[in-house]
């Protein structure tokens, strides 16, 4: 069905949501992605991806607790759903399958020998 395709960036965000399960909200996801991949993202980029993922049904959200820095505002926590999990899985399988399709590669290290 149109609209449930999982984009590359969305996959990354979805994956991270699963990784920090239970405490996944925009700020923590940005931090986690930076920690694991070194990519510096803005809050809005990740938030937009989350909104989109929620629309596709890959995550669902609920309002969680607050901290002092947030000035009493609650955070919206995102949790991966079963369809989200299977979409991730499918993406991984496609990848693995294609990895296995790569023939033995021999690299020419010209100039080294």
């Amino acid at each position: 069905m149109k609209g449930t395709h999982l984009g590359e960036f969305e996959e990354l965000v979805l994956l991270t949501t699963a990784v920090v399960d239970g405490n996944a909200y925009t700020v923590s996801i940005v931090a986690e992605i930076e920690k694991n991949t070194g990519r510096k993202l803005t809050l809005s980029t990740v938030h937009t991806a989350l909104v989109r993922l929620e629309k596709k049904g890959f995550v669902h959200s609920y309002m969680g607790g607050t901290t002092k820095e947030r000035g009493g505002r609650r955070r919206r926590l995102y949790k991966i759903t079963a369809p989200g999990y299977s979409a991730l899985n499918k993406a991984r399988e496609t990848r693995t399958k294609m990895w296995e399709m790569i023939p033995e590669l021999s690299f020419d290290f010209k100039g080294l020998t």
């Binding site: 909200y25 938030h47 909104v51 309002m63 901290t67 820095e69 947030r70 000035g71 505002r73 919206r76």
Partner: peptide
């Protein structure tokens, strides 16, 4: 719908 969450996130980012 998004205001509370977004504003909270922004403030958290600010103090960080």
């Amino acid at each position: 719908y998004y205001l509370e969450e977004v504003q909270g996130d922004l403030h958290e980012w600010y103090f960080e």
